[in-house]
Design a protein around this nucleic acid. Structure first.
Lengths: 185, 185
DNA sequence: AACCATACGGAACCGTGTTCCGTTTACCAA
DNA sequence: TTGGTAAACGGAACACGGTTCCGTATGGTT
């Protein structure tokens, strides 16, 4: 039995996702709920009926891209690149994703209000990261005791404020990736 | 001409600093202003008269420790340690400082409300970090093009959520420090 | 003792996430 | 076509945290 929703409800959900995506691009992920509602031409109540919390709205908007990122892990491993190179590429993808979504890295942090966002990203991506780490460790290219959760959270943290002048998040991530190599002290 | 303040004002400033320090320890840096006021037995207006913004209160509470950290840089360089080791120790000190102050790393981030906090930390510590980096680069131990501002902000970012289970901020910082070494790929 | 600049307390204000509830509407059945 | 009803809606109201404002109290000085 498929969930039968009223036509207006389905329409509004669509409209809201579009409006939110647009608002996130122009004003960043921190755009007030009221503004998304206004942009979509609905009341705030409607947003909360469809998305119980701000975080759920954000998750819904970015779900596709998170899935794509998750699926890219195995794909990269299968390309014949060295596992360490595959890991580096995959992390690059993740960083690209975060730094191009203004405010997303910030929202990804512990903040209790974004708990479900945090949880979704980690649930989906940590296992993939774990595969890549394991493959690279197996190949003897990197240290064998790196925890994927720590790595994902660390990389996410490094992307906070990635757009502010004078801070180069990618450089920091590159240091981390270099630091994983086993031939270092 | 020394700034002549009324006795009650001086007394309250003291009381407020003590109350804030205590509150930060027990409830974290994010403790509401009203709670600090209540703990000090004063009204919120009094806090704002002494510290124009939350960030200024935080700066005042931690000023001593930031100064100590800043002064430790040259000291470490003078101890005869290799510059890279001195840099590593200094970063450890900074990390210790951040992770033991619940919520401080979070507050240190771009958040506009904490602008003065952010500015104070960076103004004071980036030059010190620059000295250590330069010495290590000069000695040929690390890459020569690392920007101290990026490094400080990155390390600060890595300390966000340092107390949450499953995340190991120190490990991430260690990767960064390892990644700086010049003998790596 | 009187005066007044300084300092105080805390109510009020603003912005933002979230909840609540009276009203509207899509859908189905008669 | 017309009701009837459960689903959905809009937006006022609430919670909460930072900050401002202003009438009141008081330390210090004359």
């Amino acid at each position: 039995m498929a969930e039968r929703k009223r036509a207006d409800a389905r329409r509004n959900e669509r409209t809201l996702l579009d409006a939110a995506a647009e608002a996130f691009v122009t004003s960043g992920v921190h755009v007030p709920v009221r503004e998304v509602a206004a942009r979509a031409g609905v009341g705030v109540g409607t947003i909360y009926r469809h998305f119980p919390t701000r975080a759920d709205l954000i998750v819904a908007v970015y779900r596709h891209q998170v899935e794509a990122c998750a699926e890219a892990g195995p794909t990269l491993l299968a390309t014949g690149l060295s596992p360490h190179a595959a890991l580096a590429r995959w992390i690059d993808m993740f960083v690209d994703f975060l730094v191009t979504k203004h405010g997303l890295a910030e929202a990804l942090q512990g903040d209790a209000t974004f708990a479900s966002l945090h949880a979704y990203f980690l649930d989906r991506l940590v296992p993939v990261c774990g595969q890549l780490l394991a493959a690279a460790a197996e190949a003897g290219e990197i240290v064998s005791d790196m925890d994927p959760l720590t790595l994902m959270r660390g990389v996410g943290n490094l992307c906070v404020g990635a757009d502010s002048p004078g801070y180069d998040a990618r450089r920091m991530v590159a240091l981390v990736v270099a630091g994983l190599r086993i031939d270092r002290v």
